[in-house]
Design a protein around this nucleic acid. Sequence first.
RNA 1: GGCGUCGUACCCAAGUGGCUUAAGGGACCGGUUUGCAAAACCGUCAUUCGCCGGUUCGAAUCCGGCCGACGCCUCCA
Length: 462
Amino acid sequence: MKLQLYNSYSREKEQFKPIVEGQVGMYTCGPTVYDFSHIGNFRTFMFEDLLKRWLMHVGYDVKHIMNITDIDDKTIKRSRDEGVDLKTLTDLYTKYFINDLEWLKILPADNYPRATGSIDRMIDMIKVLIEKGHAYCEKDGSVYFKVNTFSRYGKLTNLKLNNQKSTKRINVDEYNKDSPHDFALWKGWKKEDGEAVWDAPWGKGRPGWHIECSAMSNEALGKHFDIHCGGVDNIFPHHENELAQSICANDGKFVNYWLHSEFLLVDGGKMSKSLKNFYTINDLKKEGFNPESVRYQLLSGHYRTKISFSLEKKLESEKLIRRLNDFNAMLLSNGANEIEHNQLPESYVEFSKAMNDDLNTPKALAVFFSWMKDQMKTLNTSHITADELGKSWNFMSIFNDIFAFIREDKLELPKNVKKLVNQRRIARGDKDWVLSDDLRNQIFKEGWLIEDTPDGQKVKKL
RNA sequence: GGCGUCGUACCCAAGUGGCUUAAGGGACCGGUUUGCAAAACCGUCAUUCGCCGGUUCGAAUCCGGCCGACGCCUCCA
């Protein structure tokens, strides 16, 4: 089975075919760096990471670009509120963002272009749009995209413009646009914008939100590329507008596959800063999460279904991660990694089929776990051939290349814990079970788990 | 008002016409093992897929109605 991906544009699963054989150009909408990103944001980035890892696994050379939005209403407001200049603020939160990605073991993009680095390209595109009659200038120096000049407008979103209800968020009187649906390509300078200002032929100001992605994807991946991802909330208006302006400016094709991940819910509802029902990576670290169990929580539901994040699921995911790591350790202790082998167990076929079916991770995980159970049984109860071990190791390695659930931290026992473990070894030799149990409790309180095996004590980090 | 998604065991979650008298994970309970634990293993855990009706030889899966949850409709991943 070949890779099938659900394309938001056609609203169906399509077989994936890259523009250039063997290569994939992938653009993913990155964060607005005015604050810490939360776990909901990371769900999307995790999905994109999964997609990229799978594309790489099936043999594609992936070029991945993730933009950093460092100029918009929120960044400007925040820098004004805090009295910090815009660049200092956005540099800081960009750094935090990259650190969080690293902690979550999300593979870095090939490039993280910043919006402020592509202003010239944006101005060029806007110029073209004005020349072609797709955009118009207003007295205040703003430039708007004229939505009714693009007949396909609304196709991605499946919205019929004349059928829309006016919501509180859209106050027609505030704008001097021809139509309320027209969106800003360029925003004329206002006093609140301070020094966030660039010169353009139609007046000074700053870019609108959507034009940055058109400009940056264009620069990095060309006018026509394979995959564009984001969260579902980006479909409208962001991606719809991006698509319209890109196609109109470039007279042609833009993106072949639009992929969107669903929301992450907390307490059954959408995360929002105003409800304070969101977690940052720092919050999760404080709660004692390890990156692998966060990865598991985010990847154990299909990317197009809403999932709930909860602290209660922490135990479930940790248990699973521990079991996986035990299995991995078991393979290692049997020397599985030293066997040269290029075959895979039969279960891999089913695993790969699930992944190729629009990244069906719950199914793929089920296949792997079920296989793992059989393997563990064999390892525990009977002899396993070198041939089987080699195959198992290959599957385990591939699995970890995709999901990264194996903990890498080399855990050094703290001195005091080491001492307690030694004392316990002696107590056990003396069959002093009372002392032994007491020491086990003490070690547990230090955050380490003791398992007694025929080969002696095994110590694991909780 | 328009567009759309979803409702499967105590919890999470696949399956979308016969291969399923419903995967996988977690919790619970019983057993093997253990000095006791832990881990591991074995067993148990939905005659049933929100409700009602229809299509069909056959439906969790298709159609209709109802109930419930959620999202989008101009700057939120």
